[in-house]
Design a binder for these strands. Sequence first.
DNA 1: TTTTGAGTTGTTCGA
DNA 2: GTCGAACAACTCAAA
Length: 472
Amino acid sequence: MVGRGLHWFRNDLRVADNLALAEAARRCERLSLLFVFDDGLLGGADMGSARVTFLLESLTALQRRLESSGQTLRLLRGDPRKLVPRMLDEIGAELLSFNRDTTPYALARDREISERVRGSGVEVVSENDRVVFSGDAVLTKTGRPYTVFTPYRNAWMERYTRLRPHAARAPRLPPPPRLPGGKTSVPSAEELGFETFSGSLPARGGEEPGRRRLVRFLETAGATYHEDRDRPDRDGTSRLSPHLHFGTLSVRQCLDAAQSAIDDDSRRRTGVRKWVDELIWREFYAQVLEHHPRVRRRSFKPEFDALEWEDRDEHFEAWCAGETGFPIVDAGMRQLRATGWMHNRLRMIVASFLTKDLLVDWRRGEAHFSRLLVDADAASNNGGWQWAASTGTDAQPYFRIFNPTRQGERYDPEGEFVRRWVGELEGLGPREIHAPSASPLLAADYPAPIVDHAERREEALRRYKRVRAPGR
DNA sequence: TTTTGAGTTGTTCGA
DNA sequence: GTCGAACAACTCAAA
């Protein structure tokens, strides 16, 4: 037992099943709670107003929840390297707790802070809370990290079944130390230098909305997830990614709920298992980034670093604006802009289109997603982009190039999703809507396709072949 | 050490 | 419309 401790919240904005918080609560007689608006993250190019808005909502919810149990959340803005040690000093803390963040920026930051405060006698407790199994927990028989998903999934599942790390209930929190200084209120997006997000987010921030959404998803959509998840015109995905990103929901809570859903009604098994696979993909990409930090800038498969991108700015801009003349691509890009979120199937379609049809470097697409997505998870975003660009861990070949028209016809067969986001095509029926250039009178306001898919496909194949042909 | 089986999500072409 | 082959061969992981 120690006297005073400090828990530093980051992407773990919940009280229940929060490993580091629970440890601090168990060990300390008095506990201070802190969140820092980290200038190193907020000031960066890859923070957008949608994500800030969800963050602020989640902080407001967390603060309210903490206040109802006699606690307070202190909010500071600046450089955590200075602020965290200063606050430890102020309250005379003997213990600092936080949950590990394995992005390279956070790793370096946390290492520096830990070293400094340990030097002045503070014990640092850091937990692996963001994923079920961190990078070193699931390794091949020869002790190396997996680079192929399926064997990773099997090994992950085997370990999970054996250990069953269940989610924990909310702990009873020790009271805060008696100190001067009142409550700090959650700032607005403007106060942090962002515009107010005017669109409608895919989910409400906060621990309680996260849990409600999880329950509702598993009750209703869970059973048909394996079929509906590819259909942007249906609400078949969980939309839990923002909650997993900010930790308003833990992955263990998701897995427990998935198991209960199957136990309650075995007809949900196929759908829910498929969804659990997606959670394991999240863990897979997290450990890929942890073991291979170079993938942030380079191809996972080094030979593709030699790819020649055409990288035309007007193409990239048309893609960002949702003005490419390919309805399903534009619908997805407009959904992203308006809601800070994009359906998974569309993420693949627009990413394939940017890299293989427009021949724009995947890193530009990744950066754009980082800025606009509410859920932009560094590891999953990178993994997804490298998958689409065929430069990643996926063993499947480079010639997998989506045909945006066919994808639209297959996954939005009535054209309902396109009609929702591309107003210019409102008057077109299911037959015409995915290839509007064939009906120029009905689609007069809509841009003509900026490239010819068949031609660009051939060009992409040539370029990919060139860098992977030996001796060339 | 060698062998074996497999690898998220695709498209196009021709029979 | 449906089906199989081609796109190309390579690397991973386990036995």
